[in-house]
């Protein structure tokens, strides 16, 4: 095994493990550092007015209410698109598909869809939904684009949840004379529901934070009031941050608004992820099978 003495072998082990620990601490410090820095600088901007009022004085004062609502509309729209499609695809993968060429093609398709850069989704949404379907730059076009973007996330989480349902559940139901679909609807899906929920929450979090896909399909710099129909443009938190930080003549003046907006976005996105993670951990601990 090794010609070195036991002591030196243990020394190299301790050294290596210390390096791994240090690396882990560095990664955690990056996360912690960003969160704490943003919190310290952003908390002073947060007020009831900031969360519920519209921007005033050409975006240098006032609140971010329309951006919060815009992000809400877009993410709800995205999950309405992605959840049925994603769960249905997951049911195919876990309950109907048999090994073979077709399954390999489907898996490759999902894997590659997950790897498409978000800005390419933006281009696709612009060409298909904004242009070809004449939806214009709108909530509808943005929601559809974001929905397709998070589709692989929803499929992945739902499939995992469905596969964790023991096959004895299915066999018992089929043995009682239920059809395949009755079994899926009344036995498999209810048992997999918490896992599917977790997946959708992760998907919502991802959709809320994405900027590039909505830049050309939904988001706009400023709207008067809230959107009145799904075909209206919207303000959105991530785009609002980008615009405040990069464009305009008041970049320094609006710094505190920028930090405040970043803090709101982080709270929303990380809050959702945290909820999903907690549900999942609980589920793993308390699962009856």
């Amino acid at each position: 095994m090794s010609r070195h003495s036991l002591a030196s072998r243990h020394f190299s082990q301790n050294l290596a493990f210390a390096v791994f620990r240090l690396i882990m601490l560095t990664v955690l410090a990056a996360l912690g550092g960003i969160l704490i820095y943003v919190f310290i600088h952003g908390i002073s901007a947060i007020s009831w007015e900031f969360l519920t009022a519209e921007p005033t004085n050409s975006m240098t004062a006032g609140g971010i209410f329309p951006a919060i609502m815009g992000t809400l509309y877009l993410t709800v729209g995205a999950i309405v698109v992605a959840l049925p499609l994603g769960v249905a695809a997951a049911i195919y993968l876990s309950e109907y598909a048999t090994d073979g060429r077709a399954l390999r093609v489907v898996r490759l398709g999902i894997q590659n869809l997950a790897g498409v850069p978000s800005v390419v989704f933006g281009l696709f949404g612009l060409a298909l939904f904004v242009g070809y379907f004449h939806l214009g730059i709108s909530i509808a076009a943005g929601s559809l684009t974001l929905g397709l973007l998070i589709l692989p996330t929803v499929i992945g989480a739902s499939e995992e949840a469905l596969r964790q349902v023991p096959s004895t559940f299915r066999e018992a139901s089929l043995g009682l004379g239920a059809t395949r679909w009755q079994t899926i609807r009344k036995v498999v899906l209810p048992a997999a529901l918490p896992g599917i929920l977790t997946g959708s929450i992760l998907g919502i979090g991802r959709a809320a934070g994405e900027t590039a896909p909505i830049m050309f399909t939904a988001a706009t710099f400023y709207t008067v009031g809230l959107p009145r129909s799904p075909l209206d443009e919207v303000m959105a938190l991530p785009y609002h941050i980008y615009v405040l930080a990069t464009a305009g003549t008041h970049i320094e003046q609006t710094r505190s608004l920028q930090y405040g907006t970043v803090l709101v976005l982080i709270s929303m996105v990380l809050g959702l992820s945290l909820v999903a993670i907690i549900i999942r951990t609980r589920m793993r601990k308390t699962k009856q099978w």
Binding site: V27, I241, A245
Partner: peptide
């Protein structure tokens, strides 16, 4: 979970931090 949280940081936030800080 902490590593997963890092993964869910929106990219615009990292862009903002890189730019401003």
């Amino acid at each position: 979970p902490a590593v997963e949280l890092l993964a869910s940081l929106p990219s615009v936030v990292l862009g903002f931090v890189g730019m401003v800080v």
